[in-house]
Structure formats: C-alpha cells, structure tokens
Amino acid sequence: MSVRVRQAKRRFETPGVAIEAIAPAPLIRFRQVGLDIGGRTIIDGVSLDIRGGEVVCVVGPSGCGKTTLLRMIAGFVQPTAGTVTFNGQPTAAPRPDVAIVFQDYGKALLPWRTAAGNVALALEAIGLPKPQRPARIAELLALLGLGGHADKYPAAMSGGMQQRLQIARALAQEPTVLLMDEPFGALDAMTRQHLQDELLRIVTDRGITVFFVTHDLEEAIYLADRVIGLAPNPGRVAREFDIGLARPRDQLATIEHPDFLRLRRALFEFIKAAES
C-alpha cells in the first residue's frame, strides 16, 4: 500500500505528464455528483478521488450526506447528476468486491444463524465451493478474535463481538473496498479502540481501500490517510485534511502527537463552522 500511496503523492508534488501516466487512476471517483430527491438537493457538486489502498474518513454535521455518498459507492443510490465510478465503471449496482459494514450490527446480522453461519452467508454469495468454506470461516473468525465463538448465535454475543462478526462477514467477500457507516459508534470506548487497531491492521495487510463515515473526529484522524469534511444544505465537500501521521498508528503515541492535536483542532473548528 505504501508504494501506491507514495506514487500517488508524487503525482501531486511533481507536475508532469510522464508521472501522471505512471500514477494509478483513482479507484473510486465522484465527478460533480449531485442528488435531488423530490425537488430537494441532498448532494451538490461533489468531486472526490479515492485511491486504491487509501483510508478515507468522512465527517460532517448530521444531514450532510455522509451516508448517502457511501450508499452511492455501494450502488444502492444513483446520483441524479454527475457520475460515481469504481475502476472506471459506473456504480450501477452492488458488487461482491465492495463490502459494507453497518452501524446497527444487531440488525445487520442474521439472528437465526450462528457466527459461522453468518460468515457463510457471504461465502455462499460469492460462490465459494462448499468444501472450502469451513476453513475460510475459521480463518476469518480467528482473524477477528472470534475463534472460540463459531457456534454462538448473535444474541449470545456482546456488541463488540457482533460488530467483529459483521466485519468478518464483510471480509469474507474479499473486498477491494470496505464501506463502513459509523461502525464503532455504538460501542464502548475500549472496544472501539481495539476494533480501530484491528481494522487498521487488517486493511493495511490486505491493501483494502476504506471509506469510513464517522461522527468521531479523533477516530477519523486516527484511522485516515485523508479526512473529508462535508458541509450540509446541500451536502458538499467543504474541506479535505491530509493526515500525514506515521503508520502503524498507536492509541497513545499517535494521539499525543502534536500533528494529531493540530489536526484535531482544525477539524473541530471546521465542524463548528459547518454546523453554524
């Protein structure tokens, strides 16, 4: 991932056609995207490039269209103006290599299926042959620290475990892109920190591109390569923050770093201004 990011960065630093040709095209591209519903403009003129392997967090006041942008990448919502493309193709419908993790894990898991069964749902959907499923399920559950809970039903699991399970199910799709809609918003602080670190470890290992919607500014800075600040009425990109913090990130060192604090202040002031 780091190589790709460096290449991509060079594109901004060194103008020139030759470099432009080497740099990979953005994986996800919003071009002048707008959405009108019933005469009301929800999203207006959003242009955004997301490179492969990048972790992008989206923040902004409620009603600024964070989730709508996510749903456009997912292919759930079609823009009424402009285009959203994935690898150059319009995101007309959901695709198996784009996985979603919802905030409400309690509703997003199949309550009548065990942890293993929930992961199996995604494996069935991508058409993995049955004999290969058990090993894959065990591997994914172990990756999320659910190794001993394969036969548990969601009702018997804590919120943190249920969200781990949902992430395991999303990873079962072997996604190129992970769309996460406030995935840790309902978890307690300790669980959230653990899951943030595990998420970063997994997506960095696998070079997964992450589009992460959150309310939590510190979470956004901690996770992201880039934070997109949206403003409401209508929803639009107001500012982008490049987060140059070193990886791997650390719950103590990163958060106490002067750059982190500086970014935190900048984001905080941005949100305050956007809300007023």
């Binding site: 759930f76 959901p94 198996p96 979603i100 919802f102 509703k107 199949l110």
Partner: peptide, 24 residues
Amino acid sequence: RLLEVAHALGMPRRRVIRDIALPS
C-alpha cells in the same frame, strides 16, 4: 437492513427468500 445486506451481497431473489425472508 437484512434486505440491504442481501442486496449488497448480490443475492438472487430465490436465495433472499430462502435464506432471509422465510427464516425471519
């Protein structure tokens, strides 16, 4: 939300009925 999960997974209608609608 479960129908969205099924939609995101690209499950065909037959599978949605068998694996989601009927069990629920």
